Computed example of a mutant assay.
Amino acid sequence: MNTRDIINKYYEVVNAGDWDTWLTLFDDNVVVDEQLAGHIEGVGVLQGAVGGIKKGYSKFQNLPKQIVINGHEACVVSHISAANASGVPIEANTANYFRLENSKIVYMANFHDTRPFDPFVNQRLD
């Protein structure tokens, strides 16, 4: 798959809630700078985060507004429309930067205002 195919697949599976397929898009040694979770290294850490995503969101949509591809790099400006586990809405504009090698995401960073995610970050999941 080329860069555009992988980026399109990324948003397709995220919006379908198919987190297992989402994980297959990353290189085993991926590095992620995530606005809420901080610096992450390795797909194993992302695998551990999937449980929190599944449990912590009752809805999660990340809808691309603009996609820019430059070789093995991409930047996507998007809008997240989500809700925490109890249904409190979350709306946020975001940008994701991706770098790919051998048809896998090797680096990703996202940028957004963290305040809209307070309903997710501050919820209690018993």
Rank of each mutant, 00 (worst) to 15 (best):
G17V: 00
T3H: 13
N70G: 06
Q123P: 13
E101T: 05
V45D: 02
T24H: 04
A82T: 14
Y57S: 03
F117D: 15
Q66W: 08
N122E: 15
I6P: 12
V31F: 07
L100H: 13
K59W: 01
L100W: 14
F120W: 15
I69P: 06
T114F: 00
R99Q: 14
F60K: 02
D18G: 01
A95L: 07
S81V: 15
A16I: 00
H39Y: 05
P119W: 00
A85Q: 07
E91H: 05
H112A: 15
K55C: 02
Q47W: 11
Y107E: 12
V45E: 02
E91L: 01
G56V: 10
D113Q: 13
V50L: 15
L36E: 08
D126M: 11
D33A: 12
V30T: 11
N96M: 04
N62D: 06
L125V: 14
Q35Y: 05
G56F: 08
N93D: 13
D5N: 09
N8I: 00
G44P: 02
G52W: 12
I105C: 07
L46K: 12
V31D: 06
F26C: 01
R4T: 09
K9T: 09
V68G: 03
R99S: 13
L23G: 08
V76L: 00
I90W: 08
D28N: 14
A49H: 14
D113E: 14
H72Y: 09
G52F: 14
M108N: 10
V32K: 04
M108H: 10
V76A: 00
W19H: 04
W22I: 01
D33F: 13
Q61D: 09
M1I: 02
N96C: 06
